[in-house]
Structures are given as structure tokens and as C-alpha cells.
Design a protein around this nucleic acid. Structure first.
Lengths: 256, 256
DNA sequence: TCGGTTTTGTGAACGCATTCACAAATGGCT
DNA sequence: AGCCATTTGTGAATGCGTTCACAAAACCGA
């Protein structure tokens, strides 16, 4: 049922932390007891939390103090029950009959996403896209700052973009160490992506955002997220194609 | 406003079909083709098909004629059973004991994704990011071509980018009609996104790729996919935070 | 204090997606 | 031809995520 209202959050002190989680097929004999790791926030929820955070920030700016799950869900484009469940994962407390305190929710979500400290980002590849990313405002907001730009092209070294000087990719190890880089953004051509990725991993970077149209192979423990423009378009194309012909088995409209 | 739209693809769940109670999508072996509604390819599969296509194209260039599900899956970074199931959705035929013919597979996937014709894309917002997208090679490859650039800023009108002249966003209706725009790409600031989106929809564009950090509300029947850089970073941040502290409570100073 | 109204938090149902596991098909070899 | 090695295609099992539905709070007004 409900959790005991007395006291604050008191989740089971879920046992030990990160044991080696091998996602390899055919778990030979790992007795990695799946202890209901109840602290885990589902991946899908994490993505939405970021959306809620954005909406909440806007509400806060507008001076809104309280918001119901229904309102927030509508603004975020999700089902309200889904939103409540998402929030329940981070142990958030709303007030029944009232809603959620905007400020409290912002703080909680920021805490969950680790946005209280500012992570340093290194951007590798300042070509067409990388150049834009370096100056993209949305990047520097809340919790991140681009700390370094690198490129393999000698012609680009030394160029200044958004207040940063482009350094040779060979200096990546130094850059990561000196600037405490936590996230690597790959905006190189596809053929260079895997190599750069390995370089990042060797330097100890375990979070990578990949804009190159290539599948990256990484060891366990490294998180890669990819943004693939061509694929997004192709998915839209698929649906577009579907709209043209109503397929419905029967009723064949002779569409000129 | 009213009907919120989520990120990802928001598909009109047309209430057309009668309650298809087919609990068993069991393969009907009759050649009579009942209600072939099961032609639907799962959304998740569509995204992967695009990835397979890229890998297959590379293989084809290398002169590879045949590939097994195991090899292709490894190159695409997925489970081989998953890949085979994906392919089974598009009715692909491999050869048992041998594998798949690369050329045939490329053709089939392109057909499924509707990449045989070239869809015209209109890009609205040629600021930092839009500018880069206009010149981004990955965009124009295979099946798409940016046919028009538009912006609301008078200062940008007339500027030439990648061989195209920037036109005022007010001309969108004409542009869509004249150039037969199928996909709209929104690369405006967040505050303008919803307005531009509605303009696109009014013009009859039903496929939208949104780069603005805003939740778009669209009517049923319109597909929206979003690419949100800040959210990608925040997801990585979440996992990064996870790596640092072993699980346990959300906040160290938690209440009592 | 009490009943009415609102809204949260969550068990349970549901549906989609992934993975397993194996029969069926195919080609090669003797 | 017959057997063996290989690989597909897919039912079944499993897992994950979303949605439903409702009891449990919390506030309010009389």
C-alpha cells in the first residue's frame, strides 16, 4: 500500500551497489541476484524527468508555486498517471488534494539527474555540426559547460569558437585530466567516430554523446547515447509513406 | 493546449478499425490475405531498420554479398534474434544456412522506409543550429533533400546557405505547396517552436522533426520526433551520478 | 467535528518489445 | 543420396513500461 507517512523517505537500504552487471548473452553462472534494486529509476522515466524539469522551470519563472500532476503532465505531453509514477520513483512527495510544490520538485529532479554540480564536456569535431553545438545555448544551460573543443584537422587547431580555442585531439588525455571532463561529445565524421570513442574511453570518460552516424562499440560500464539525424528523418519517412496508402485490407480507394 | 503531444512519435490512433480482438497475431497461412492490418512494423523495429540499412550500405560498398544475422546484428549493436524478428516484420527472406543477400535487404528496407522517392524537407530557423543542419551532409543522404530554408528574422532573409536563399517564414504556405514539402524541421528558439509547428500543420505538413527544446502539441495524425540535446546530456548526467555513488539514498542529507 | 472535494501514490492489468530456444530449411561434403 | 553443419524464422517466455482504477491523504467550509 502506501508508504508510512511518518518520517521522510525511507527506502530499503538496498544492498550493495554496482556489482558487475554483465549484459552479455548467456549468463553463464552469474548469481547476480536481481534484488529489486528499488532505487533504480527506469531509463524511460529519466528521460521524462528532464522534460518535467524544463516545464517546471518555466512555471517557476512565471511564479507558479504549485502544480497538479494533471497540469504538469499536460504541459509535458504525457499521461498523468505516468508522471506520478515517474515522480514516485524519485521518492517525491506531493500533497494529496493539492499537488506538487514546484520549487521542491525542481530541486528533487535536479538532484536525481545530478545537475547540482556542473559537468565538464569535451566536444570532439568542430566541423559543421560541432561548430554549431559549441555555440548552441541549450547546451550550456543547467548543469553543463563545454570545457574544451578538439579536432583532428590541423587547419582547425587554434581557431576560437565561443571563447574556446580548438586543440588537437591528441591532447585529449591532458584535457580530460586537467579539466575533469565527464562527458565526451563526438561530432566527427562517421569514419573517425569509433577511434575517437576509444580514445575517450581510454582517458576514462564513461559518458558519450554521439552525433556521428556510426554504431559505437564500447566496453561495459560506458554509456553512449546517440543522436542520429538521418535516422530520425527515415523514421518520419516510414510514417509518411504509411499515410499515403491506407492499407486497410478492404476499401481500396483509387487515389489518383 | 488541449491534446498534448509527447516527444517521440505521436501517432494518430485512428479509431477506424473495428475492435481488432486478435489476441493471436498468429501467422495466418491462408493466401487470402484477411485483414492485413498486422502489416504494421513496430516502432522500435523501424528505428533499427534504419541502422541496419546504414551498415548494409557499407557492406555493399565493400563488396560483401551475403551476411548472417549474427554478423549484421553485431555490426548494428543489437541481439541477433531481435534483428531476425525485425526483418521478419518486413517479410524479408533470408536463406537458411546461408544468411541474407545484402543487396536484397537494402532494397527491402529502403522500400519499407519509403526511401525510394526523395522527400522534400523545409528547415525553419537558420540560427546557430539550423545553419549547421542546412549544411550537414548526413541530412541530404539517401532519400531527402533540403528544399527550403526559412526564418522569422528579417536580418536573415536573403542570406544564402548551402545554395539556398533564406525566405521569410510567412511564405511557408507557398513553399510547402510549390516544393511539395513533406517534412518540416524546426530549429527555432523554444518560444517560437509551437507557433511554427502550428503553421506547418496548417500547411498540411504532418511529419515534423523538432530541435527546439519545447514540447509540441499537435493534432492527431501528425508525427513529431524530437531531438533534444540538453535532455541527452541530462540522461548521461544521471548515469554519471549513478557511477559515483553506489545507489543508496537520493540525498545524503536526507530528512529524518 | 464532519462530510465533500480534490489529488496523490500505487497495486494490478495490460500491451509492447526483447530474448530464448528450437524446428525447419538449406547447402556442402562424402 | 544421405548426413552434417549452419542459419533462418518464429512460438513461447520473459521483461519492461504504461495505463487503469481506487484507497488513502489533505484541505475546506459549515
Amino acid at each position: 500500500m502506501e508508504e508510512p507517512a511518518t518520517g521522510g523517505v525511507r527506502r530499503a537500504r538496498a544492498a550493495i551497489g554496482r556489482a558487475v552487471r554483465s549484459t552479455l548473452p548467456g549468463r553463464v553462472e552469474s548469481r547476480v541476484e536481481p534484488r529489486r534494486d528499488d532505487r533504480a529509476v527506469p531509463e524511460a522515466s529519466v528521460a521524462r524527468l528532464a522534460v518535467y524539469l524544463r516545464v517546471l522551470s518555466q512555471l517557476a519563472e512565471q511564479g507558479v508555486v504549485t502544480v497538479s500532476s494533471e497540469e504538469l503532465a499536460a504541459a509535458a505531453g504525457v499521461n498523468s498517471a505516468n508522471l506520478r509514477k515517474d515522480l514516485s520513483h524519485i521518492g517525491s512527495y506531493g500533497t494529496r488534494g493539492v499537488g506538487y510544490d514546484v520549487a521542491v520538485l525542481v530541486e528533487r529532479i535536479e538532484g536525481t539527474l545530478g545537475l547540482t554540480r556542473r559537468l565538464a564536456v569535451a566536444l570532439i569535431g568542430v566541423g559543421n555540426l560541432g561548430h554549431a553545438l559549441a555555440g548552441y545555448g541549450g547546451f550550456t544551460t543547467r548543469g553543463f559547460h563545454i570545457a574544451a573543443l578538439l579536432d583532428a584537422d590541423p587547419a582547425r587547431i587554434g581557431e576560437e569558437i565561443a571563447g574556446l580555442v580548438v586543440r588537437p585531439v591528441a591532447e585529449l588525455p591532458d584535457v580530460v585530466r586537467e579539466l575533469d571532463i565527464a562527458i565526451g561529445v563526438i561530432a566527427t565524421p562517421a569514419h573517425a567516430a569509433q577511434e575517437v570513442c576509444e580514445l575517450l574511453v581510454d582517458c576514462g570518460v564513461t559518458s558519450i554523446l554521439n552525433f556521428a552516424p556510426a554504431v559505437l562499440a564500447v566496453p561495459d560500464g560506458v554509456d553512449v547515447r546517440k543522436v542520429d539525424l538521418a535516422i530520425e528523418l527515415q523514421i518520419l519517412s516510414f510514417h509518411e509513406q504509411r499515410k499515403l496508402r491506407p492499407i486497410s485490407g478492404t476499401a481500396l480507394e483509387e487515389v489518383g
